[in-house]
Amino acid sequence: MRVGSGSIVSSGSAFSHTGSPRPSRPGQLDAAIADNIVGGMDPQQLSEISHATAAALLDRVHHATDARVVERTLTIVDREGVDVVAELWSDAQPDTLPGTLWRLYMLRTWMRRQKESVTRLWRLGEPVATSASAIVGVDAAPTESDIARTADSILSGAFTGDFAVALTRAATFIEVVVLGLRVQARHSKASSTQVARLLHTGANLHATAKDLKQAAHLWRQGKLE
């Protein structure tokens, strides 16, 4: 699934970014930290910073009373691109807080940029997973606008509500899309290569759903850091 240049595409880690120019740094990131990252730094230092910034951002937004703080946090990728955030979080393991936040941001970007494809896949997969609509909070036959709102709702819920619940919603959403991909592959008249690509995409997305479920479990145990 692809949308134009600089699109979010499925990859080995389920979501990756291609073709984007380097953005200016997000306002939520400390200037000194961002400057150090651009110049390169020791991997251990970068790992420590990635964990610290993820925890600080989550804590700050969770305790914010200004709705504009939440809005700016949700739209970091929209306004600034992903490069600086990627340098902080994209290499973090999926069972860590920065790795989990990275996947949530990429999920939101993917859902919003590929609303048409995602909507179609949800409609194909939802009848197979009949309880998913209630868990995710989206209709069985959503519109593209519904998908965009759900993308925002999942990410905002991670920052302002129960983090584990948001991760479960995200994982369930992805699982329905995976089912949709399987249905599409099963009934597709495309070449065997194209069908294999659909199934490979589904496998990558399924792995991300498992990562998010595991992160939810770790969060409930107080072990997601």
Rank of each mutant, 00 (worst) to 15 (best):
T65R: 12
S20R: 14
G99M: 02
G99P: 05
P98T: 07
Q93V: 06
G39C: 07
V61F: 01
I49G: 00
D66L: 03
A64I: 07
R25Y: 13
A32H: 12
D35N: 15
V77M: 13
A55M: 09
S7H: 03
L58T: 04
G99A: 06
A34E: 03
S47G: 06
Q45C: 08
H62D: 07
R22N: 09
M41E: 09
S10L: 07
A86G: 15
G81W: 01
L88E: 00
S16E: 09
A32M: 10
H17D: 10
A32R: 12
G12W: 09
A14F: 14
Q45G: 13
T18K: 04
L57A: 11
P23Y: 08
V9K: 08
T73I: 08
H62A: 04
T18A: 09
S16N: 12
S13G: 11
T53I: 04
G39V: 06
L74C: 04
L29A: 15
D42S: 10
L58G: 02
I76E: 03
T96G: 06
G27S: 15
A32Y: 10
L29K: 14
L46N: 12
V9R: 06
D83T: 05
G99L: 03
D83K: 05
P21D: 03
G19R: 10
V69H: 01
L29G: 07
P23C: 04
V70G: 05
D66R: 00
G27C: 09
